[in-house]
């Protein structure tokens, strides 16, 4: 097992899949010669050549739309949207086209496409380099939405996404890119799409999260155990759509107290659906109202550092919310 960073896991998955299958290729802005603005595709251009690592014109709808066409033809494009904030011009291609191709053709065509997009704040990216846009894609049947939190999951899920027969939106928390490191097997493995993962076993409260805030919850859980004697059970959603309802309900039942944490704003966020699933399936097994700790309901994260810090969750904020629920 090697310890690698979150972004190296992205790179490693792309490299291995491109080596394995000549139909896998990468396209996007600056992904070729430069290796991506975050360096997620570094070295691929040198290894696989410009025909399979395409620097595209700066036009997001074309990046998605061209990838849709190539995927329908039978290739496995992995398109990069440079920042998730810039995915909006491509939404028509993702929602009207990629997500509906199989359905509208009665199963005749399909669209095995991956769109990778770095999302999330904490990097002084201001309004348009910090957004969490996942919720708006989480009620589009035909689409799968993945948001891993660890290098192990990044690599295993990205490989699964590339091999998937349907379109997958793959959201990478950009603050995690170099902050989060973890063990990744040297041999080939996959992580299944649609399966949540228990990242910590516990018995007093359940925390359900994904992405950067999952790490905040893990850190807060240590403090809660040491200082307050409560053990937290932590579920990482990993796939945001369709949700792993079974694992969510099981995790909720485990402790009877549920805190949902995400950086995306609260109203209409993924946490709302998670909460509804729990309420539908096991409301009377709960010992406390379901709590959500999320970003505030404002349009985006300001540039000013103090304001950004106010917006962002942190291990301390998550600890406070966990403690309050544990003591309920």
């Amino acid at each position: 097992m090697a310890v690698i960073s979150y972004i190296d896991a992205v790179n490693s998955a792309l490299r291995e899949e491109m080596s394995r299958d000549s139909k896998v290729f990468v396209l996007g802005e600056d992904v070729g010669f430069k290796g991506g603005v975050f360096k997620a595709t570094q070295g691929l251009y040198e290894q696989f050549g410009e025909a399979r690592v395409l620097d595209t014109p700066l036009a997001e709808s074309a990046i998605a739309g061209v990838a849709v066409g190539a995927a329908a033809y039978g290739f496995r494009p992995v398109a990069e949207i440079q920042f998730a904030d810039f995915i909006m011009p491509a939404v028509n291609q993702i929602v009207s086209e990629a997500a509906k191709m199989r359905y509208r053709s009665n199963g005749d065509w399909n669209c095995p496409l991956v769109i990778r997009a770095p999302y999330g704040g904490g990097i002084h990216g201001a309004l348009y380099h910090s957004q969490s846009v996942e919720a708006m894609f989480c009620n589009i049947p035909g689409l799968k939405v993945v948001a891993p939190s660890t290098p192990y999951d990044v690599k295993g899920l990205l490989i699964s996404a590339i091999r998937d027969e349907d379109p997958v939106l793959f959201f990478e928390h950009k603050r995690c890119y170099r902050l989060i490191k973890g063990e990744v097997p040297d041999t080939e493995y996959v992580v299944p799409i649609g399966k949540a993962d228990v990242k910590r076993q516990g018995k007093h409260i359940t925390v359900i999260s994904y992405g950067l805030t999952l790490h905040f919850a893990l850190q807060a859980a240590e403090k809660l155990a040491q200082e307050d004697g409560y053990s937290a059970h932590i579920l990482d959603l990993r796939t945001l759509y369709p949700l792993d309802k079974e694992s969510i309900v099981e995790a909720a039942r485990r402790t009877g107290k549920v805190l949902i944490v995400h950086e995306d704003n609260k109203e209409g966020g993924v946490g709302a659906e998670v909460s509804a699933v729990i309420a539908e399936e096991c409301l009377f097994e709960l010992d406390a109202p379901i709590k959500r700790l999320c970003g505030p309901d404002v349009p985006a994260i300001p540039y000013n550092g103090i304001m950004e810090k106010f917006f962002m969750l942190s291990p301390d904020k998550v600890y406070e919310a966990m403690k309050e629920l544990a003591e309920y």
Binding site: S61, A64, G65, V66, V68, G69, A70, A71, A72, E97
Partner: peptide, 8 residues
């Protein structure tokens, strides 16, 4: 754009 993708 799909046509362009098939051509590619």
């Amino acid at each position: 754009p799909h046509a362009v993708g098939i051509a590619l």
